[in-house]
Each structure stands twice: as structure tokens, then as C-alpha cells.
Computed example of a mutant assay.
Amino acid sequence: MQWLDQQPRSSVVFLCFGSLGCFGADQVKEIAYALEQSGHRFLWSLRQPAEVFSWNDYEKVPEVLPEGFLDRTAEIGKVIGWAPQVDILGHPAIGGFISHCGWNSTLESIWFGVPMVTWPLHSEQQLNALTLVKELGLAVEIKMDYRIDDGEVEIIKAEKIEKGIKWLMGNDSNVRQMMREINDESRKVLMDSGSSHTNLRRFINDVMNNMP
């Protein structure tokens, strides 16, 4: 958070793929190449592949990244393990979010008005990504599915990742404008008389009125 405090407003792209989101060594290197080539500031939550419902941070991060990557990007980037996602998304330095499109992450990104790049990994994330890109216009597509060929997940090349980052972080991005608009709407629904506030009240009243 102290590092973010030193960065210009809306200048940092945040990469985080959920508690269980992780990649193999080949994909990690492609992400690193893309970040370095893009030239944009970044904060990357990098997790180690583990068993289902278990996750860990890398003990020796430099060993899984391209040689010299951390030195070459020391002025513009930071690689971390577990990340306090809500605090980070709410920081004014964050200008974009590369996400697995889990529903919690999607709502948090909308709440803080941070445009997204979609990279679904499993479960309902593919549907969320499709909705964000095609229906709502709140995200840029790096990937919209989690296709597995012959038991192996497709490796996304650095060029495609870099293109998504540059499109997302462009100041004239339509996605950025759409996110600002829906961010305002998302906050209204929680206000007194907003739709979420009203529907929750109706639900509570229905439960209370029908208790035995």
C-alpha cells in the first residue's frame, strides 16, 4: 500500500486471480514479458500452484520469473503474494484490473470503478467474463473461456496480454467510460430506497411475517 501511495493516479494495472488462481511456469513468464513490454506500472499478486483448496506464495519469486525481470521493472512494478484486494482496488493509483472474473472480484471492481481485463479460470467465471465484455462493455478481453485441450490449459502469449493491457489503460478507452457510469449506478442501489436496499428489506419483512 505504501508503494501504491507513491504512484500517479490511475496509473497501475493490478493482476490478481483469486485465492486459488495460479499459473504454471510457462504462463507466468508470458505474463511477465507482457508487463515489461507494455511499460505500464503494475502490481502483480503471484500465487504458487497447489492442491485444490490450498494455496501458497512463492518462497523464491525470482526463480519463476524471466531472468532479471524484477531488476528491469523495479521502477514501475511490484510482485507480491497474497493481496488485500479490496484495499488495492479502492486505491486511487489503480487504473485497471486483470482478473479471473470471480463474482466477488467483479462486484468489487465495479464498486470502485476499476475497468477490467477478463481471464476466467474455472466455474462461473466464463459466464461473468462474457457478460462483462459483450453485454455490459465493462471489460477488455484477453481470454473469455477456459478451454482445455488434451488435458492442458492454453498458454496465452505475451503479445495478446500486452495488447489487452494497453487497450485497458488507454485514457480514451470506452470501457473506462462505461465503468464510470455503472460505478455511479452501483452505489445508488445500496442507498435508502435503492433496489438492493428495498429488496433486502422486503425479504427480511417476508421472513419475519411468516415465522411460526
Score class of each variant (00 low, 15 high):
2 Q>P: 01
3 W>K: 04
3 W>P: 13
4 L>F: 12
6 Q>L: 15
7 Q>E: 13
8 P>S: 14
9 R>L: 14
9 R>C: 13
10 S>A: 14
12 V>R: 04
13 V>P: 12
13 V>Y: 12
17 F>C: 05
18 G>C: 02
19 S>C: 01
20 L>Q: 15
20 L>T: 10
22 C>A: 15
22 C>S: 15
23 F>P: 07
24 G>C: 12
26 D>H: 05
29 K>Y: 03
29 K>T: 00
30 E>P: 01
31 I>Y: 04
33 Y>R: 07
34 A>L: 08
35 L>V: 04
36 E>F: 04
36 E>L: 04
38 S>P: 00
38 S>L: 07
39 G>H: 09
41 R>T: 08
44 W>L: 03
45 S>K: 11
47 R>D: 00
48 Q>A: 09
49 P>G: 09
49 P>W: 00
50 A>Y: 12
51 E>K: 15
51 E>N: 14
52 V>H: 05
52 V>E: 12
53 F>T: 02
54 S>K: 15
55 W>C: 11
55 W>N: 10
57 D>A: 11
64 V>I: 15
65 L>Y: 07
68 G>A: 11
70 L>P: 06
72 R>F: 09
72 R>D: 05
74 A>V: 12
74 A>Q: 14
76 I>H: 08
76 I>C: 09
77 G>L: 10
79 V>P: 08
80 I>N: 02
81 G>K: 04
81 G>A: 12
84 P>N: 04
85 Q>L: 13
86 V>T: 15
87 D>H: 06
87 D>C: 06
93 A>G: 06
96 G>F: 10
99 S>N: 07
102 G>N: 09
103 W>R: 10
104 N>P: 00
105 S>W: 07
105 S>V: 05
105 S>H: 04
107 L>W: 08
107 L>F: 11
109 S>L: 01
113 G>L: 04
114 V>P: 02
115 P>A: 05
116 M>P: 05
118 T>N: 06
118 T>M: 04
120 P>A: 05
122 H>P: 01
123 S>P: 00
125 Q>T: 01
128 N>V: 03
130 L>P: 03
131 T>K: 06
135 E>P: 02
137 G>Y: 13
137 G>N: 12
137 G>D: 13
138 L>R: 03
138 L>M: 10
138 L>V: 01
139 A>R: 07
142 I>H: 00
144 M>S: 02
146 Y>I: 02
150 D>P: 00
154 E>M: 02
156 I>H: 00
157 K>C: 01
159 E>Y: 04
159 E>Q: 12
163 K>E: 14
163 K>D: 03
166 K>T: 11
167 W>S: 10
168 L>I: 06
169 M>W: 10
171 N>S: 11
174 N>E: 14
175 V>H: 07
176 R>V: 07
177 Q>G: 00
177 Q>Y: 06
180 R>E: 13
181 E>W: 05
182 I>H: 10
183 N>E: 15
184 D>Q: 14
186 S>E: 00
187 R>C: 06
188 K>N: 08
189 V>W: 09
190 L>M: 14
192 D>V: 15
195 S>M: 07
198 T>H: 15
200 L>K: 06
203 F>S: 11
203 F>Y: 15
205 N>I: 06
205 N>A: 14
209 N>V: 01
210 N>D: 14
